[in-house]
Simulated assay, not measured.
Amino acid sequence: MTPPIVLTVAGSDSGAGAGVQADLKVFAAMRLYGTSVITAITAQNTRDVRAVFPVPAQTVTDQLTALADDLPPLAVKTGMLGSTAVADAVSGAARSGMLPNLVVDPVLVSTSGRRLGVVNAIERLLPYAMVMTPNRAEASAILGWVVSTPDDMAKAARQLAATGSRYVVVTGGDADAESPAEGAVDALWTGATVRLLRGPWVETRNTHGTGCSFSAAIAGRLALGDAVPEAVVFAKRYVARALLGAQRWELGGGHGPLDHHGWSGRDGSGSE
């Protein structure tokens, strides 16, 4: 069977733990055909982002047009956009119908702390989003108040829905170390109510690319025909398995990557 096409519009990560490289790994693990539009080139490893080289907005448009003409996707995810000019180019493509089932991961800061985006660039794309997937820090930056607890996350998801995205998932994986007994808690706005989704907390330093992988997995399931809530639940389980699989990996000296392909054989429930 011909695999469905899924598109990632994001930055390139030379360490291959996040960005376009992580997204393509997720798509391959899901037996989907992944295509890509590069918005920026980064020089980074597991420890830090050393440099960011933005791609010109016209080059981004050229990539989007080339794919739309021959390899149109069934779903799309965006990550790092880098500039308002690139955000305008991508939002223009969304407005014209080139980016169906759009999942917006509002990348603002890298795992190592490097700023990678600006809020007003992200906001240009939100009216066209099917799903928005900010973590607590990104939700805080967009809303202008500190999102901390699960109750805060639920409130933030409701408020962010006003930006235009039909569904909002505020992820709380960055909070788990503060209260591991609570597990990994995400807040999903479904258009009518907020659901708190709970999963296992995996103690590991290998967390680079969790947000990218989560949003990519949602887009992948949308391409396969899932409704958004089911796609989000799948993505949460996928990331938990990927974290557990890479739990003992020693790749690099900082925040290492995930086990996107299940190489470890561990299934996310703790069994081998």
Rank of each mutant, 00 (worst) to 15 (best):
P134N: 09
S140L: 05
L251Y: 09
V169W: 12
T190L: 06
T190D: 03
R198D: 01
A177M: 02
A129S: 15
S213E: 01
E123W: 04
R221W: 02
V147W: 05
V185W: 01
S140Q: 07
W189L: 08
A217W: 02
A231L: 03
G191Q: 13
V109A: 02
A223H: 04
A141G: 12
E178M: 11
A154Q: 09
T207G: 01
P106D: 11
A216I: 00
R115K: 14
G144E: 04
Y167C: 12
T210M: 14
G191A: 06
A121M: 08
A219I: 00
P127S: 13
P134M: 03
V194I: 13
G199R: 13
A157C: 07
A156S: 10
W201Y: 06
G173E: 04
A187H: 10
A184K: 07
A227N: 03
S215D: 05
L222Y: 07
I122G: 00
D176L: 15
M132Y: 01
A129E: 10
P150S: 04
T149E: 12
T207R: 11
S215M: 09
A227I: 01
E182G: 10
V118Y: 04
G225E: 09
R248A: 10
A137N: 12
E182C: 03
I142V: 15
V107D: 02
D152I: 08
R124Y: 03
S112R: 02
A162V: 07
A242S: 13
L143A: 06
A192M: 04
V170T: 00
N206G: 11
G191C: 10
D174V: 12
L160E: 02
W145G: 09
G245Q: 04
A137L: 11
A181T: 13
T171K: 15
S140N: 11
G220I: 02
E178I: 12
N206V: 03
E123I: 15
G225L: 08
S165R: 01
G199S: 15
G172D: 04
A246K: 10
L116S: 05
S165L: 09
A175F: 13
V185Y: 07
L108F: 09
T133D: 14
V228T: 06
G211S: 14
M153Q: 04
E250T: 09
R198P: 09
E203W: 00
S110G: 10
E203R: 15
R198F: 03
P200C: 05
L126D: 00
L116M: 12
F214T: 09
A121P: 08
M132V: 05
K236V: 06
G199Y: 03
A227L: 13
R195W: 04
S215V: 04
A216K: 06
Y238M: 13
E138K: 12
F234R: 07
R198C: 07
A129D: 05
N206S: 09
A156C: 11
E138L: 11
A227Y: 06
D174E: 13
A162C: 04
T193K: 13
